[in-house]
Design a protein around this nucleic acid. Structure first.
Lengths: 263, 263
DNA sequence: GAATTGTGTTCAATATATTGAATATGCTAG
DNA sequence: CTAGCATATTCAATATATTGAACACAATTC
């Protein structure tokens, strides 16, 4: 079922683009990323709906660019280190990551939570670009590079609050989300509006049972929501300490970061 | 001068390949990675020797794949988060990284050095896939994702020792290397042979003045050199403690890792 | 041991991605 | 305000990347 959707999106991108080879390459990279073990030519071609020979040439090009590794013995392909090099360069260039890291470290220490820095990418997803876990206690965690649907959880309420969607579009996209404990659209929509007035959003176990998420927007450019600071904690632990201190700390840290970009 | 060399390599890859669009895409990604600030279409096209319209279509495809970000206001392109997602998947799939990390942490603590895990990629380069810095003292460091010429420094002596190059090829490639204090080929070649007999390599300030590098191979598959553990330290500090303990620790850790892959 | 089914790979025909000239638009300078 | 020179973008002609059939080879199955 996942494959179907991927194949559809791939077909679209390839058909529409004037450089379909690039879409094929990207699809191959993502496919190799998704699977734990190296894949053979036929498998890749079949799964993506590509002609084997075309796929072979694409793979050879990717191997030449050191983005894909080729095991000559088993004739299997997998991701190669080139993708890491690109990622490192991207992280270096993103000033947000550099400035946010010390803030994440401080907040995770002070409030004993897992802190994330996230960034919107496209209209569909947010990705984790920085993380800091608190010491030794049991903690939830998310990996740098992890991708989530744009409208899910606390960050989702921020996205909904600060990007200009009309209610109709918001509703259709809301219906595609998967929660452990789905809120009704009405409740959720009210919380989105609260987010706009209070400057941060909370998800108390909706997305993942037992996990509370708090998110506050960081403004790299005025009016354009793109980044946020996120705190993750086990609901029980957070309720014991109370959410107010954490929310206040998160919001003031986020505002501090925003100011450093407004110059 | 750097541009010249890149353009040459790019031209080669494009001409030879049956999927030149992919080589163009990779070149664009690397170019965007190299520059700190976002680039315009013309700049990219000029620097890579591409036709602007072709370049435009390539960029649009990359944007559609979320590998490149496009700022509609400034019409500038930069790397996007997609590259991070790929890198994370690659790191997850590579068992070496997982197994090596705790070893790196232990060695860096015990010997107060910066530890790296490196991997050969292609015949030309090694990349840093894991790192662990020792506490608070002044330390040299290298970033995960960093790329180095295959034959440079201590890791280079390992590559030369354990891959089967004939002496002629070794010599021509040796001549292209840049060292702070270049050794003569004869001295270097002798050290390569020592590496084979003693099981680890040392670079005492050749590559970077004042920095001592020790490297020991890790064998994921018997006879195929691909990975290594590397210790970095300021020469003065290392000489005070003596290199013997460090070398022994490094070699036994590397052998331990190798055994875990031999099953 | 022959037949079958799976690989990965090559190669000439053709659908199409690439090209370069033409267009639109914005910016700077006189 | 206009001229000049950037930029991004479009479009039809053509060079070529893609295709699918044919090939070689290995691993199963009968």
């Amino acid at each position: 079922m996942n494959d179907k959707r991927d194949a559809g999106g791939l077909a679209d991108n390839i058909k529409q683009s004037k450089a379909p080879a690039i879409s094929r390459a990207a699809a191959i990279l993502r496919l190799l990323g998704k699977h734990e073990s190296p894949l053979g030519l036929q498998t890749i071609a079949r799964e993506l709906g590509l002609v084997p020979s075309t796929c072979l040439y694409a793979l050879r090009a990717l191997v030449a660019e050191e983005l894909v590794a080729f095991d000559a013995d088993t004739k299997r392909y997998s991701l190669d280190a080139g993708v890491l090099t690109l990622a490192r360069q991207w992280l270096q260039r993103d000033q947000f990551t550099d400035l946010a890291q010390p803030v994440l470290d401080r907040l995770s220490r002070e409030h004993e939570v897992t802190m994330l820095a996230v960034k919107c990418v496209g209209a569909e997803h947010i990705v984790v670009v920085g993380a800091s876990r608190a010491g030794n206690t049991l903690q939830v965690s998310a990996q740098v590079g992890g991708r989530f649907p744009a409208l899910i959880s606390a960050t989702g309420r921020c996205v909904a609050a600060y990007r200009n969607f009309d209610e109709a579009e918001l509703r259709t996209r809301f219906d595609t989300l998967r929660w452990d404990n789905p809120p009704s659209f009405e409740d959720w929509y009210r919380e989105v509006q609260e987010t706009r007035s209070q400057g941060f959003a909370v998800d108390a176990g909706n997305y993942i049972s037992g996990v509370t998420v708090v998110a506050a927007p960081v403004w790299l450019a005025p009016g354009k929501f793109s980044h946020a600071l996120v705190a993750l904690g086990l609901g029980s632990a957070l309720q014991r300490r109370g959410l107010d201190g954490l929310s206040a700390g998160l919001v003031s840290a986020a505002e501090g970061l925003s100011q450093r970009f407004s110059t």
